[in-house]
Simulated scan of single mutants.
Amino acid sequence: MERPDPAARDRQLLSRLRIGFVALVAVSAGLIASYADGSLLEAASAVGGGAVVGVLLVWLAFPSPSAEASERSPRR
């Protein structure tokens, strides 16, 4: 029986975390718009805008795998 690759598992976990973070921000923006008595179009626009903001936040908050690898490699 083969053991799962820890690096692949970590990449998958990080990918799911990023997707969940974007979804959380997008849904939050849509809920805020709906609680403010916005129309369906306004709530949908807020979800779209929240998704864009979520992607930008993920880009800033979570490092890319290549950046992590370069930080872990010893400098010579």
Rank of each mutant, 00 (worst) to 15 (best):
D10S: 11
D10Y: 10
D10V: 04
D10E: 14
R11P: 08
R11H: 14
R11V: 03
R11M: 13
Q12M: 14
Q12E: 14
Q12H: 15
L13H: 14
L14I: 07
S15T: 11
S15I: 05
S15W: 10
R16H: 10
L17A: 10
L17N: 00
L17P: 02
L17Q: 01
R18G: 02
R18D: 00
R18L: 02
I19S: 11
I19H: 10
G20D: 11
G20E: 12
G20L: 05
G20R: 10
F21G: 01
F21M: 07
F21I: 01
V22E: 02
A23Y: 12
A23R: 09
A23Q: 13
L24G: 15
L24V: 13
L24Q: 15
L24A: 15
V25I: 14
V25Y: 05
V25N: 03
V25K: 02
V25C: 12
A26G: 11
A26Q: 05
A26Y: 09
V27M: 14
V27L: 15
A29E: 07
A29T: 07
G30N: 03
I32F: 12
I32K: 13
I32Y: 11
I32T: 14
A33T: 06
A33R: 03
S34Q: 11
S34R: 15
Y35Q: 15
Y35C: 13
A36V: 01
D37I: 00
G38L: 01
G38I: 00
S39V: 09
L40P: 03
L40W: 14
L41A: 15
A43D: 05
A44K: 09
A44P: 03
S45Y: 08
A46N: 10
A46Q: 03
A46H: 03
V47P: 08
V47D: 05
V47K: 07
G48P: 02
G50N: 05
G50M: 01
A51Y: 15
A51K: 06
V52K: 08
V52F: 12
V52T: 13
V53N: 02
G54R: 03
G54Y: 13
G54Q: 04
G54F: 13
V55C: 11
V55N: 08
L56G: 08
L56K: 02
L57Y: 07
V58F: 07
V58T: 12
V58I: 05
V58N: 01
W59P: 00
W59I: 02
L60K: 03
L60P: 00
A61Y: 02
P63G: 00
P63A: 05
P63L: 02
P63V: 00
S64G: 12
P65Y: 13
P65Q: 13
S66F: 08
A67G: 01
A67F: 08
A67V: 09
A67T: 04
E68I: 12
A69Q: 10
S70L: 08
S70C: 00
E71M: 06
R72K: 13
R72C: 07
S73V: 07
S73Y: 10
